[in-house]
């Protein structure tokens, strides 16, 4: 396959950056999207030009590092798929592909397609944990957890923090990310103790980092590679309302 790429090139955080055209030639349909970029970079190396800088790590769809908006959709639009698991057979010979970084005030661009997502870490640091006393290991079944609660917590825990929800949200909001962690911990008895405080400090930390507010577009759910649902945001809203009520 031969493709025309328009890739966002930006030297550093202060550089204005621009879309640059590249030709990707003799691309195998069996390649992953990242392997296709590797091929383009090989060519650039041969030509003595600076390679396209992009984030990647596991290349098996579980780490959430590969942050690219492909033709206007974070991770390229294949359902529940990260960029590394997107294959070139999804494209046609002669296609034009636009590749941009996540765009949000809270995700400053480091270089080309790499953004700094540490704002998500700071939301977790604000309250995305549960406090435990250390000591002897507790008996495994000392605290019983109903199966549906455990399932829901596990579903929410699937979030890999890739930031696609932010990249897709028309408001640049990290509410789905925050809601996944709030739900995961609120469903478990150990996490309930700090649930009221957690939902407040995490949503406040989200705003402080410069993310927008959720206005229920549900665009986040549509692009999430791990299938995190907006019903978790409804759960976060319930937790927030509960936190306001006098006990």
């Amino acid at each position: 396959m031969d493709l025309t790429l328009f890739v966002w090139r930006q030297k550093g955080p202060k550089d204005p950056g621009k879309l640059q055209e590249y030709k990707a030639k003799n691309i195998s349909p069996d390649m992953s999207f990242l392997e296709m970029l590797d091929e383009v970079n090989e060519e650039l190396v041969m030509e003595g030009k600076e390679t396209i800088v992009f984030d990647h790590d596991c290349r098996e769809g579980i780490c959430g590092t590969c942050s690219q908006v492909i033709n206007g959709i974070p991770h390229g639009g294949q359902e529940r798929t990260t960029v590394c698991q997107l294959h070139m057979r999804k494209f046609k010979d002669g296609d034009t592909i636009y590749i941009e970084p996540w765009r949000a005030k809270a995700f400053p661009i480091v270089k080309d397609l790499i953004v700094d997502r540490s704002a998500l870490d700071r939301i977790i640091q604000a309250g995305g944990y549960m406090s435990n006393h250390t000591g002897g290991a507790a008996d495994a079944n000392a605290i019983l957890i109903p199966k549906p609660a455990a399932e829901m917590a596990m579903d929410a825990a699937e979030c890999i923090g890739c930031g696609a929800c932010v990249a897709a949200c028309p408001n640049g909001s990290a509410m789905l990310f925050t809601a996944a962690k709030v739900t995961q911990l609120a469903m478990l008895p150990q996490g309930r103790i700090e649930a009221a405080q957690r939902v407040c400090v995490m949503t406040d930390a989200m705003l402080k980092e410069g993310f927008g507010n959720c206005t229920n577009h549900y665009e986040c759910q549509a692009v999430c590679p791990k299938g995190i649902k907006v019903s978790f945001i409804a759960k976060l809203n319930r937790e927030f309302i509960k936190a306001q009520l006098p006990l």
Binding site: W8, G72, A104, G212
Partner: peptide
């Protein structure tokens, strides 16, 4: 809120496709 949400994405996408967000919502 609209001003805040607008400020959360200072640089727009060159290409942006919405899969779920509706015209009325946006």
């Amino acid at each position: 809120l609209a001003l805040e949400n607008n400020a959360a994405r200072p640089a727009p996408y060159a290409v942006k496709k919405n899969l779920r967000a509706t015209f009325s919502g946006r």
